[in-house]
Design a protein around this nucleic acid. Structure first.
Lengths: 202, 202
DNA sequence: TCTTGATTTGACCAAGCGGTCAAAGGAACG
DNA sequence: CGTTCCTTTGACCGCTTGGTCAAATCAAGA
């Protein structure tokens, strides 16, 4: 199926999705126009619609591709590993995603901000199930005193919010810090805070 | 000046701004339409434009009103108070704003996500200056060992991101937690984490 | 070279959009 | 009751937008 695509088709679909990601992540779904996307992709608008049947289709394709990898960092959290190391590594993976894929993060943020009309069901099923599973693991670690007692759900929310903040609120962060790369500082802060919160000595 | 407004003018401007806040915070600037806003306000579109000269004007008025109070919680952080108490109280004030004014938070989030085209200058001046001032205070507390050493900027970012998360990503939070009110849990988490991070015993 | 299917485009369309305007309807006050 | 100013509206306009279509161009194999 996927192999039946021409080289030209592969290239153009890829170029279009990249241009669409630029526009949708920056202007939101309604704010982005097909003309902008076509222009950014270096194609005419009818030509763009030869590869994707509609604006909606581009957006859907982007969202689907995003969701394939969006949960990977949390999925990789290993209940058999060292608790503090695992949670810290998870947070760092998430921060790295904000650094390497800020557009994807903003695409996701736009979708959630608008009430997640296209992925609300996934949030309530796949995402909730995954978080429940990992929260159980963390709760277990707390119960056996391998980490300090803590609410696992809000811990996960705090990791999400903090790491995504550097992608979604990039402009604000750089306005305050003076446009130096904030990620190294964020990474160090993350390590310091998480180890301090979770270390079970008391 | 402001007193020269009729009762009807006051009421309608207020109703329009409320409807505009609903729409802009949910759909973004481009995603919201004058017809939607007029409809939500219970007015005809020309009537709406009798009170505000343009869609842009409604949006600007909302942003200006927002910015009047947006920085208050941080402004109130008192360098003469007890360090941990002050920072914790600041975070709780910020969380309360997410609880009481989620639409304002989302309006702000939309603006920042899109690159802050209308308030970027404020971020680099007023906001930066305020943050610098308060960061100095926090750094001072760290230096004199009244709180544990910590990067004040990323501490502030973490408070922003965590507290605003419950307004901006409300749908996701409720999808995971099952639509129970998340704010009490968030508040307890905040208190626990901040005291633990900042307590200078070591 | 010819044919076939993939690719590209200029011209076009209908709907939705922000915004205008002249005229009608109300409210307050003498 | 009449005047004046505030308020409201239906009809309309020009522009942008997502999307269509027939025709032109191109690529590749027989």
């Amino acid at each position: 199926m996927a192999k039946s695509l021409t080289r030209i088709q592969q290239r153009n679909r890829s170029v279009i999705m990249d241009a669409g990601l630029d526009m949708f992540s920056q202007h939101g779904f309604k704010g982005a126009t097909l003309d902008q996307i076509a222009d950014a992709a270096g194609l005419s608008k009818p030509n763009l619609l030869y590869y994707f049947p509609s604006k909606e289709a581009i957006h859907t394709a982007l969202l689907e591709r995003l969701l394939e990898n969006w949960l990977d960092p949390l999925q990789a959290l290993d209940g058999a590993g060292d608790p503090v190391t695992e949670i810290l590594a998870y947070a760092q993976r998430k921060l790295k995603m904000s650094r390497d894929y800020p557009r994807e993060s903003r695409l996701f943020a736009n979708e959630i901000l608008q009430g997640a009309p296209r992925i609300k069901d996934i949030l309530g099923t796949d995402l909730k199930q995954l978080v429940d599973t990992k929260a159980d693991i963390i709760r277990g670690w707390s119960a056996t005193n391998k980490i300090a007692p803590i609410d696992p759900y809000h811990l996960i929310f705090s990791i999400w919010s903090f790491t995504q903040h550097y992608a979604d609120f990039d402009v604000q962060v750089r306005a305050v810090l003076g446009s130096d790369d904030p990620f190294d500082g964020a990474s160090a802060f993350l390590e310091h805070v998480i180890t301090r919160i979770l270390s079970p000595n008391n």
